[in-house]
């Protein structure tokens, strides 16, 4: 014996999916119709730097000592400008990720990176600098960043150059950054590396 047929609308209304869609629609419509208070969260994000610094070391033979110093900008022509918002104190971090260091160890016997920075209002020669051997005597140089925050999930084995705290208590400030690569002794590579590169990551953490 055939079960009795329900009318068309009864069959539709009994579907659970239809009931869910209906309730969701009512909630949305209801929120428009009702009175409510509005809070707003204002924010402003200023680019830390707008400069994309690219330095070309060129092509070199393997197992070759290179006395040339390669410049990514200079004191009078800085490579990057970092903007510090008013009333903020920032730690600026520049570092080479672990994966890039592994490649550098295969390609270089030695290579050193020096980062320079100064306030835009500072006089000539009033700058700070920090050097780090990325690879020295065939071994890459790990330094864990201090503190290891700012980039979740990157892991502890990173080569970091930690700049001192830069603060802007009164108004927005501009700082200049530039860097050098020297102390290059290429590795005794067996095959050409081809054109390749390593990154220097830059980020800041508010104190």
């Amino acid at each position: 014996m055939k079960p009795p047929k329900f009318p068309f609308f009864s069959r539709i209304f009994l579907k659970p999916a239809f009931i869910v869609v209906l309730m969701f629609t009512l909630i949305i419509l209801g929120s428009y119709a009702a009175q409510y208070y509005a809070w707003s969260v204002g924010y402003q994000i200023t680019p830390l730097t707008t400069s994309v610094v690219v330095v070309d070391l060129g092509a070199h033979s393997g197992a070759t000592s290179v006395p040339t110093v390669y410049h990514g900008g200079s004191e009078t022509n800085p490579a990057a400008t970092l903007s510090i918002p008013s009333g903020k104190t920032l730690n600026i971090y520049t570092f080479i990720p672990h994966s890039a260091l592994d490649a550098l160890e295969n390609h270089f016997y030695s290579i050193r990176l020096t980062v320079y920075w100064k306030k835009s209002t500072a006089g000539l020669g009033e700058y700070n600098s920090k050097s780090i051997w990325l690879v020295y005597n065939g071994v890459h140089h790990y330094v864990s960043p201090e503190p290891n925050i700012g980039l979740d999930g990157v892991g502890p084995n990173m080569n970091a150059i930690v700049s001192p705290t830069i603060s802007s208590a009164v108004g927005p400030e501009t700082w200049y950054f530039w860097f050098e690569v020297d102390g290059i002794w290429t590795g005794a590579v067996q095959t050409s590396t081809g054109p390749t590169s390593f990154p220097i990551w830059v980020y800041a953490v508010e104190v």
Binding site: L48, T49, V52, V53, V54, V55, D56, L57, G58, A59, H60, S61, G62, A63, T64, Y70, G72, A79, A80, T94, H107, F108, G150, L151, D152, G153, V154, F179, V181, T186, G187, A188, V189, Q190, T191, S192, T193, G194, P195, T196, S197, F198, P199, I200, W201, V202, Y203
Partner: peptide, 22 residues
């Protein structure tokens, strides 16, 4: 989810080079 934190939140400078066997 795992990749997004690594690709976000930093500026990148770049050093290019080529090494050919001597």
């Amino acid at each position: 989810l795992f990749l997004s934190p690594q690709t976000a939140g930093n500026y990148t400078w770049q050093v290019n080079y080529t090494i050919v066997p001597l």
